[in-house]
Amino acid sequence: MGAVPASGRSLGGRARPRHRPRARTLRRRRALIGLLLVSPALAFVTVFFLVPLVLMIWMSLHRWPLLGHTSWIGLGNYRAMGSDPVFWRSLGFTVEYTAIVTPILIVLGFGLALLVRRRRRGVGFFRTVFFMPYVIGFAAASYLFVWLLNPDVGLLDKTLQSLGFTSSPVQWLSTRTLALFAVVLMIVWKTVGFTMLLFMAGLQGIPEDVHEAASVDGASRWTTLRRVTLPLLRRTIALTVILAVVGSMLAFDQFYIITNGGPANQTLTVVYWIYNSSFVNFQLGYGAAMSVVLMLILMVITAVQLYLLRDQAER
């Protein structure tokens, strides 16, 4: 990895002395072109991220009903969170859900990538099959599962019964455990293809001679995987873990559609509670305050992950 040149050094500054006016003009022009090139992205981020973010923080400092007048309450919404048991319960549930989903996605995605990474007969078919569910929207996939899990008309119960696993339809959404299981099943089916794709790309980025060198040195397949492949996949692992964690911490659609937060709101995620506070209880200011807190939590989690999974060379 040391072969890659450090990217921070400017190419223009290497050859010529610094005070030459021509070089300065060139540097300035390059900087200008660079700015010009990133400006669409910059504008996009400003309009669709920074402005809403500032508005959200502004809203969180107000009593902001969906209807009627807003009034300044300072940190009132943040203080109220402390004695809101629903917020803490939903946060706990969301963390639990994330802790279940993330390892399954990583391990299964990596396993699938190992299976389909090499070109051989029929591999294209399996790659397509594994990746296909990813292109369906969350809402459509959730409705598909609502139907699959329906005890009266769903396919799953019919199959389980004809195979002799169960004797009567399972009420999939009647208990917390089963409802959570159903959602995890859907999410893994839907998103594992994407994790697989990321790992495939990562595996393809590892030069073949590294593996050859390992086998020449007499390393077993297991040792090669553990000592060579996985360390070289560090960046890919970091990316997939961060994507899985952020995606799971922001889970909403699947719970809104499949479990409706039930039974008895035991599968209520933080975003679901933010939605309910804002658009059922009409407390938009409180919803905004919880969004800010959730964003801060995600920033901390992501920062910790980036630190733990940083490159060997950076340590």
């Binding site: 107000h62 009593r63 009903p65 009132g76 109220a80 969170m81 004695s83 809101d84 048991p85 407390q283």
Partner: peptide, 14 residues
């Protein structure tokens, strides 16, 4: 006790 604090929270926020 819990419901009292939770109701206060709801009424204090917006």
């Amino acid at each position: 006790t819990q419901a009292q604090s939770s109701m206060s929270s709801i009424l204090s926020r917006g």
